[in-house]
């Protein structure tokens, strides 16, 4: 069997949009398929000590708080990506902001990291930080509320 031939065929399939390729030559039949198989996700967690419980608890805990406390003059900052929430630029540095701090548009609030994409989140309003809804180093979901800012 010519391994190089198969390697070349795999390369052709990989670099194109086709998902299946079948070639027959001198009694040799090669079939290449790149159906992306469904992966079973058993848990959805991150590098935390007790990930399963935490992930399950996170949602119900933050949601009622948000409904209870968010009033007209309060502005929510939500995560634009799935990732890990950091309150400081480096492990040994001071947090960007604390509860009670006055912020204005452009003030850096936190970083959310995913796959080495460091996403720095700035405030888009002026006001006072009244709640920090996620603990440093915890995973956050897309659109999960991170900060509550009192705007007036």
């Amino acid at each position: 069997m010519d391994l190089n031939l198969i390697k070349r065929l795999v390369k052709i399939v990989n670099s194109s949009d086709i998902t299946d390729l079948e070639v027959q030559e001198d009694g040799l039949k090669v079939k290449i398929s790149k159906k992306i198989r469904g992966t079973q996700i058993v848990t959805h967690s991150h590098l935390q000590p007790a990930p399963v419980q935490e992930a399950a608890k996170a949602q119900p805990e933050t949601l009622p708080a948000e409904i209870e406390s968010k009033t007209e003059n309060q502005h929510e900052i939500k995560s634009p990506i799935v990732g890990t929430f950091y309150r400081a630029p480096a492990p040994d540095a001071d947090p960007y902001v604390q509860i009670g701090d006055i912020v204005s548009p452009g003030t850096v609030l936190c970083i959310v990291e995913a796959m080495k994409l460091m996403n720095e989140i700035e405030s888009d309003v002026s006001g006072k930080i009244i709640k920090i809804l996620v603990e440093n180093g915890k995973p956050v979901e897309y659109s999960q509320p991170l900060f509550l800012i009192q705007t007036a």
Binding site: H75, E76, I77, K78, S79, P80, I81, P105, G106, M115, K116, L117, M118, N119, E120, I121, E122, S123, D124, V125, S143
Partner: peptide, 13 residues
Amino acid sequence: GILFESISAGSKI
């Protein structure tokens, strides 16, 4: 090495 960074204003990149 690659360092990918973004800035969001509020909830938008």
